[in-house]
């Protein structure tokens, strides 16, 4: 866990140095890959009954990875980024109230979800910060796009969190 937190701040520095869109996407792609690999590695370690959560997380990171990768190779990437930024997704900050915990050796479903939420939240904030500090233009747009992507991902996770944890009660 701590290792990854560190990773994030390191990546922030890494990204700040980047200036071209393609380079930024390269780094973003590698982040998603790291995350995917992290979850994939976790799958066999958790109890089988909650394995689906980790599997789904890995799958989602894979999708992100694919998306960023395809973006990178997309000749019309600029126009697509413009599209995305015009419709920003709100950050509802639900994850703010989910305490960030250590994953530990034998995490339960709630812990994993909380961890994932925090992770997406941190990523989102990072990109947001980067966007705020970047000069207007292509670069800022890219950061903003990445921030929105992470926000959306986080939102999906929040829904999942509610559906799994808030399961109602007996009558």
């Amino acid at each position: 866990m701590s290792k990854h937190k560190e990773g994030h701040s390191k990546s922030y520095e890494k990204l700040k140095l980047k200036t071209t869109l393609k380079e930024i996407l390269d780094v973003a792609v590698s982040f998603e890959k790291t995350a995917r690999d992290f979850y994939t590695a976790m799958i066999p370690k958790v109890s089988k009954n909650i394995r689906y959560i980790v599997e789904e997380l890995a799958e989602e990171e894979q999708q992100h990875y694919d998306l960023f990768l395809s973006l990178k190779n997309d000749p019309y990437v600029q126009s697509q980024l413009d599209e995305r930024i015009k419709t920003p997704t709100e950050n509802h900050k639900f994850s703010d109230y989910v305490q960030l915990l250590d994953l530990g050796d034998n995490p339960d479903d709630q812990t994993i979800l909380q961890y994932a939420l925090a992770r997406e939240d941190a990523a989102m904030k990072q990109y947001q910060d980067l966007a705020d500090n970047a000069p207007e233009g292509e670069l800022q747009d890219t950061f903003r796009f990445l921030a929105i992507e992470e926000a959306e991902h986080k939102l999906e996770l929040e829904k999942k969190y509610y559906e799994i944890i808030h399961s109602g009660g007996p009558q």
Partner: peptide
Amino acid sequence: QMSDVSILGDELTEELEWNRG
């Protein structure tokens, strides 16, 4: 709420198929 499925034991948990928890 959730179910205390730990009583199944690791072996049985692993043997069983699961559906979203």
